[in-house]
Design a protein around this nucleic acid. Structure first.
Length: 472
RNA sequence: GCUCCCGUGGUGUAGUCCGGCCCAUCAUCUCGGCCUUUCGAGCCGAAUACCCGGGUUCAAAUCCCGGCGGGAGCACCA
């Protein structure tokens, strides 16, 4: 066998290729229980990566087969989140609109002896399974099973079970439930159906019927894949390519949709975009670039290793993307008021960005008698009559509550201060819940809803009289 | 308990399939220096990794065996 060439180092890294014989069709399939969060973005980014690489298609499939776990706003929110991430689904599929297809396919499997109906007690059925024993209902003939199935559609209670190998040493893989009764109304279908498919059944049917060629998902689905293969077998279908990447643990981040929802309803969080949580919309509000998500996950690869998400690395990537185009502003926390004294009016002319001169300057006229605010914390170290430099303006001597102009000369070693002349108050919200307030330069009106850097503090996104901390 | 997956610096990753080009890649973080109208950025430098033990081989991160460690599943959730 010929040896594979080592990749040339200067080439950008690529994810491993897909085995492909036809046009690539991928899918992203969340349950509509809330908006998307950071945890969803790996599946999304990876599937989208291969879609672009092979010029394929990406299907967004909303898995709403559990009427009790649906937030009707989520259908919309998920699509908005996708849009924000810059990902376009070629098709949007809603599973609850496909129930009749599932019924048709399960009838086929039942009539060929691949599934059975039982109305017995749940625990009784599970105990037998654990002991590798068949439930008495399992071996009834298909005609009876079908009749039983139709009765579930009407008013009886029971489940439909896919037969697998009861002898399977892995208890997770023995007979699994394909349908169960849920009487609560569905947000979209209302009371049209009472017999609802479960995850593994609906997924297998849809992946095939929607023409999915590659199922790219987390390792937590390894057993599900084995279950779904039984459906393919009973239907006589070719399997798609299954690829499982390792699990991600995201430290110090609350991603539980149900918990977040509770905190929102209790008023602790302001909404799904509260800057303390890691929903897409909250991260967007803090000013992350959508590109960072795809970059980060593409760099993490598709290996089956479990990985830890690193905010540090993520933030570093984001900074790379936004640094050159983010304007700089002075931010003065714990402001102390001073009166400026000078013989003549002087002008502040500070670059919007120290390196990117294309961004131009911010200009401000300072007169004698103007109020100047200095950061309280830094002042603590300074004595009366010390000479300091007001950054991008001039040198002054502190005399009680006044700042007396001395000269413009750049002097080595004297402390440099950020300062503000305006009393434009802004509240700075940190993701850990800390709220800081301070003054910011007055000329931020045009900067509303953009990401800027508060010098020395870090990058923030401005929103009215609020600023959301992004990262350093 | 049963079953499956995975172990490369602090973190993420390349290399593992097909042994040699690997005294191991790149990024981030950390630490020092230079530069700078404080920060950041930039430039230069430093430090840190093949889970352990055996085996095969001229040669092992890579192949084999055994241990250890981590994760997941065993739902009428998705």
């Amino acid at each position: 066998m010929p040896k594979k060439k080592k990749p040339v180092k200067s080439e950008p890294k690529e994810l491993p290729p897909l085995n492909k014989s036809k046009n690539v069709v991928l899918r992203f399939a969340p349950g509509p229980s809330g908006p998307l969060h950071l945890g969803h973005t790996r599946a999304l980014a990876l599937n989208n990566y291969y879609k672009k690489r092979y010029n394929g298609k990406l299907i967004l499939r909303l898995e709403d087969t559990n009427p009790n776990a649906i937030d009707s706003d989520a259908y919309e929110m998920i699509q908005d989140d996708l849009k924000w991430l810059g990902i376009e689904a070629d098709k949007v599929i809603i599973q609850s609109e496909r129930i009749d297809t599932y019924y048709e396919d399960i009838r086929k499997i039942i009539s060929e002896g691949g599934a059975y109906v039982t109305k017995s007690d749940a625990e009784e059925w599970r105990v037998l399974k654990r002991q590798k024993k068949a439930h008495p209902d399992r071996d009834r003939n298909p005609e009876i099973q079908i009749k039983e199935f139709e009765s579930l559609l009407k008013d009886e209670n029971g489940i439909v079970v896919i037969k697998t190998n009861l002898e399977d040493p892995n208890p997770a893989l023995r007979d699994f439930v394909a349908f169960r009764i849920v009487d609560s109304p569905h947000p979209l279908q209302k009371s049209k159906y009472r017999l609802w498919p479960l995850y593994n059944f609906a997924v297998a049917i849809d992946d095939y019927r929607l023409g999915i060629t590659h199922v790219l998902r987390g390792k937590d689905h390894l057993n599900n894949t084995e279950k779904q293969k039984w459906i393919y077998k009973y239907m006589g279908w070719d399997e798609p390519e299954f690829i499982h990447y390792g699990l991600v643990s995201i430290p110090k981040t609350n991603l539980k949709t149900s918990k977040i929802r509770q905190s929102i309803s209790e008023g602790e969080y302001s909404g799904w975009d509260d800057c303390r949580i890691a929903t897409i919309r909250a991260l967007a509000r803090r000013g992350y670039s959508s590109e960072t998500f795809s970059k980060y996950w593409e760099a993490s690869g598709v290996k089956e290793v479990d990985i830890k998400f690193s905010w540090q690395n993520f933030d570093a990537m984001n900074k790379d993307l936004i640094d050159a185009k983010s304007k700089r502003l002075f931010f003065v926390s714990e402001p102390k008021e001073f009166t400026f004294k000078t013989g003549e009016t002087i002008t502040k002319e500070a670059p919007w960005h120290p390196d990117n001169k294309d961004l131009g300057n911010r200009v401000e006229i300072i007169k004698s008698g103007s109020k100047i605010y200095l950061p309280g914390a830094d002042l603590g170290k300074i004595q009366d009559y010390s000479e300091i430099r007001l950054k991008n303006l001039c040198n002054v001597k502190i005399n009680g509550n006044t700042l007396e102009f001395t000269d413009f000369e750049h002097k080595k070693g004297i402390p440099i201060f950020q300062w503000c002349s305006a009393s434009k108050n802004i509240k700075l919200y940190y993701p850990d819940g800390v709220v800081n307030s301070g003054l910011v330069e007055d000329n931020i009106d045009d900067l509303d809803n953009t990401v800027v850097q508060f010098e020395r503090t870090g990058f923030v996104r401005l929103e009215g009289d609020k600023a959301f901390f992004l990262h350093r």
